[in-house]
Amino acid sequence: MAEQDVVHGTLSRINARAWGIATGLILGGGLCLATIVLVVRGGPYMGQHLGRLTNVLPGYSVSWLGAFVGLVYGFVVGYGLGRLIGPRSPLSSTREPSGTTHVRLNGKAWGLTLGAACGLVLFAVTNLLDVKGGEHPGAFLSNLHVYLPGFRVDFVGSLIGFAYLLALGFLAGELIAAIYNRAVERAEG
């Protein structure tokens, strides 16, 4: 039993690390690429919206250096988020390793993971902007109310936003798992 616990612990750690690195690379690479696209395109109002990220990521700017800073921030945040939300249970919903060459996804695990990730990010960013205050805190973020009725940049709004994204993320995760599982079945024949 003790041996089983050790194996479970090791697998859990490895799984969390894999999720952390994969999420970190996606988030860091995505922010870096988004910044570089704007820098290359140039213009008089270059990055006036993406540049607002400096409110939550100190030192970030829409510039070549900012792209690197964004890469680091994105990786660190993504790694932490990935480790935090990476499923503790196996990703697979079915125990059929014999003959299976690719893992199947557990829709509920992916749904909860994606929903929690999106919800936590919105919750954290909203509260950070609310705490920082200013004349129009979160003026840009508050535009989300078009898609998430009732959302606003304050604590109650952050809870509403969290609930919305948890639900939407859950649906998206379930959809991803369903499409993936079907596609893998087809690919493996």
């Binding site: 697998l11 196996p90 990703l91 697979s92 390793p97 060459t101 690719h102 893992v103 993936y180 893998v184």
Partner: peptide, 8 residues
């Protein structure tokens, strides 16, 4: 076996 099975 499942833990190390790759994603497609």
């Amino acid at each position: 076996a499942l833990a190390f099975t790759p994603l497609h």
